[in-house]
């Protein structure tokens, strides 16, 4: 444990409190003049505080604010698997480039496959992906199933319960595709979020789980990764060199990146303020090269290898791939077969 100098800590605490008090009284927007941004950036987050998106957004915005000379305020709307955040954003946010959304593209695009939103999807776009976290299959470190071969073999004898974050999720689709290909019986159980899914596998209620890699590889004592749903394993050391699905089973699944967190924006904002959009995109690129960002990511124990920029085209391609595979499994996702 870190032993602290109590006197110094108390001073730091009081200083911190005082600084926070003073900072709160400063009118931030007026301090930086009228150029963009004119006020704090507002970010709609479609998941809960403390989740993967929150962690990534906090780390990213913590550095991005340096280049934009403003503060970021995040508002969390985890309602209806993220639908509420998107509906709120499209309904309420001003199209002036100050208000963005930061979500996990895969599961959120799949929402629209299950049920279209009330707004026109053409009015919205993702413009900057900040990470690409592969969908994986994982088991409990000391559990009875230890490899993907164990899982498939056992799945041919009995139906295995697979803990997943939600049904409309790239990692779930990966499991369903694997089951279809191998003939193993997998029963995905949606547990509302990564935290509960890890709990389900850890406590043995689930036979194994399928999630993005980020929340699993940093818990090597608890879990072991046994399969990746991407073409390449970007984390060989952290994942016991887990095989990729296509290499192992000869499938031709698309890259099922389960955590592809990205900033999204109203297209109207870009059309109305192209100069502001340019400032946004140029400044955010600097974040990826900033050592402070790497430090912040590493501090959260998230693997730096998963961090990577993806532009608007890459985001659109990914969103389309997810939509297509989602349509293929629509019946299973909606329970209406």
């Amino acid at each position: 444990m870190t032993h602290f100098d109590r006197g110094a800590s108390r001073r730091a605490f009081l200083k911190g409190t005082a600084a926070a008090g003073v900072a709160a009284t400063l009118p931030l927007s007026s301090a930086f003049g009228a150029s963009f941004p004119e006020r704090n950036m507002q970010v709609y987050v479609p998941t809960r505080e403390g989740g993967g998106a929150d962690r990534n957004q906090r780390a990213f915005a913590g550095v991005w604010k340096k280049y934009l000379n403003t503060e970021f305020e995040a508002a969390f709307y985890p309602g209806a698997a993220g639908r509420v955040a998107y509906e709120k954003y499209m309904g309420l946010a001003k199209a002036d480039c100050h208000e963005l959304i930061f979500g996990n593209m895969g599961p959120e695009v799949l929402n629209w496959v299950v049920e279209p939103p009330t707004f026109d999807l053409n009015d919205f776009m993702y413009f900057a992906r900040v990470d690409a976290d592969p969908g994986i299959v994982f088991v409990k470190r000391d559990g009875p199933l230890q490899t993907i071969d164990d899982i498939v073999a056992e799945g041919k004898k009995r139906t295995l319960n697979v803990g997943v974050s939600r049904l409309a999720h790239p990692a779930t689709l990966g499991m369903l595709a694997l089951g279809r290909h191998t003939g193993a019986q997998f029963n995905p159980i949606p547990l509302s979020g990564g935290k509960n899914t890890r709990a389900g596998v850890e406590t043995g209620e689930m036979d194994f789980g399928a999630l993005p890699a980020g929340g699993i590889v940093n818990r090597p004592k608890n879990f072991k990764v046994v399969l990746m749903f991407t073409h390449k394993n970007p984390l060989p050391d952290l994942s016991d060199n887990a095989p990729t699905v296509n290499a192992k089973f000869g499938t031709s699944l698309p890259d099922l990146v389960a955590g592809a967190r990205a900033y999204g924006i109203k297209k109207a904002a870009i059309e109305k303020y192209p100069d502001r959009y340019k400032i946004l995109t140029e400044s955010l690129l600097k974040v990826f090269d900033d050592p402070e960002y790497k430090e912040a990511i590493i501090r959260t124990k998230a693997p730096w290898e998963l961090i990577g920029y993806g532009g608007p085209e890459e985001c659109a391609t990914y969103a389309k791939a997810m939509t297509d595979i989602g349509k293929d499994y629509k019946d299973l996702l909606t329970g209406k077969s």
């Binding site: 870190t2 602290f4 600084a19």
Partner: peptide, 8 residues
């Protein structure tokens, strides 16, 4: 404020 404090 909490993040600026010492972890303990």
């Amino acid at each position: 404020l909490t993040l600026s404090m010492d972890p303990e």
